[in-house]
């Protein structure tokens, strides 16, 4: 499971950096490297782009996993370059941005947008697997998530927009409920699809979401 990210436009990066001339860049060696949005190569490319904008890049690093506790140690190693910067441009998902921000009082600027939590099916092809809805229904849906795989997140079967097993929003995308039907049928478990699924509880963990594991 990975955080799937996309680089913001250079215009937006520049807009966020308004008034901030000295920039330290942080990439991430895990998800953002795999999605080629914030690995070593992209960080070096961003360094050049920033210099073309007239910014001064005080330094850069690629933290192995920006969202874990090792981030603090990595930041400590680079204290000098970070201290001489006006801000930190983080090329990781929002988890890494927030983790970095928790250790540093300087402005922390995201260079990426976090799109979804997904997996890579083939080279460069990622799909969302979990919306973290708080009440898993995969046991009723042959292991295919109707919350993420169905555009409307329907729980009781397909809408009328499905056509030849495809979704009404994109003819290239599979209809989740056609897939669920086929797999339940193969398993001889269509009774699960006939069962009424009640409205989901949208407040299982109240936002801001926090949980304490004792």
């Amino acid at each position: 499971m990975k955080s799937i990210t996309r680089q913001k436009s250079l215009e937006e990066v520049e807009h966020q950096l308004e008034g901030l001339e000295r920039v330290y860049i942080i990439g991430c060696g895990t998800c953002a490297t795999m999605t080629r949005t914030g690995g070593r190569e992209e960080v070096l490319d961003m360094k050049e782009r920033l210099q073309e904008m007239g910014k001064m890049v005080t330094g850069w690093t690629v933290i192995p996993t920006a969202c874990d506790d090792m981030t603090e140690a990595s930041l400590n190693e680079n204290t000098g370059f970070i201290q001489s910067a006006d801000c930190i441009l983080v090329m990781s998902c929002a988890l890494g941005v927030q983790k970095v921000g928790s250790y540093i009082s300087k402005p922390v600027i995201p260079a990426l947008d976090t799109l979804f939590i997904g997996v890579e099916d083939g080279p460069g092809y990622f799909h969302e697997v979990c919306d973290q809805c708080g009440h898993c229904v995969l046991g009723y849906t042959a292991g295919i998530c109707p919350i993420t795989a169905c555009h409307k997140g329907l729980l009781n079967g397909p809408c009328g927009g499905t056509n030849n097993g495809k979704c009404e929003v994109d003819k290239e995308k599979d209809c989740a409920w056609t897939l669920i039907y086929q797999r339940l049928n193969e398993q001889g478990r269509l009774d699960l699809m006939r069962k009424y699924q009640p409205v989901k509880n949208s407040q299982i963990v109240l936002r801001p979401r926090v949980t304490i594991i004792s």
């Binding site: 409307k152 997140g153 809408c159 009404e168």
Partner: peptide, 26 residues
């Protein structure tokens, strides 16, 4: 259930779909 939001003329709007047609009947 309702058509998907992106097929219409407010393509960036939020689609609610908290209920589906079966749940609305109930």
């Amino acid at each position: 259930t309702g058509d998907a939001v992106p097929v219409g003329d407010h393509k960036e709007a939020k689609g609610v779909f908290e209920l589906d047609s079966v749940q609305l009947l109930r």
